[in-house]
């Protein structure tokens, strides 16, 4: 069961950029410019699967800051993406890379990738 969930999550991560790009491709020519994208890589502080709220700790040296990101709710990323994201789980301490864009309500993730930190 656990392996199945993991497989679903990994598949979702792999497919997510495809889905996102596909969504972008459906926009008609001449539509408004896409919002600038931002990339953050950091450590997960907290993740609420139900709402998709992801708190990421990033930093420059010892100057640490929290980045609040919402994992693409249906309103922004389309139902298919949201459904796939629903399988994702992150726990405090995970290292992730998030590509996102800014909306009126904050940063919304377009792509999330778990970074495997090598063991020595």
């Amino acid at each position: 069961m656990h392996c199945t969930s993991r497989a679903v999550a990994l598949t979702a991560m792999l497919l997510l950029p495809v889905v996102t790009h596909a969504a972008v491709d459906r926009h008609p020519q001449g539509a408004a410019q896409p919002a600038p994208s931002y990339t953050y890589q950091g450590t997960v502080r907290a993740f609420t699967a139900k709402t998709g709220a992801l708190d990421l700790i990033t930093g420059v040296g010892m100057a640490l800051r929290i980045v609040h990101v919402t994992l693409a709710p249906a309103a922004h990323a389309g139902g298919g993406t949201a459904a796939r994201l629903a399988g994702l789980e992150f726990k405090a301490g995970d290292v992730v890379r998030v590509e996102c864009h800014r909306t009126a309500t904050g940063l919304v993730a377009d792509r999330v990738e778990r970074i495997e930190v090598p063991k020595p």
């Binding site: 450590t43 990033t58 040296g61 970074i115 930190v117």
Partner: peptide, 11 residues
């Protein structure tokens, strides 16, 4: 390790 997973040296 840094918060983004790189090898840490300082601090």
């Amino acid at each position: 390790r840094s918060l983004d997973g790189r090898i840490g040296r300082f601090g």
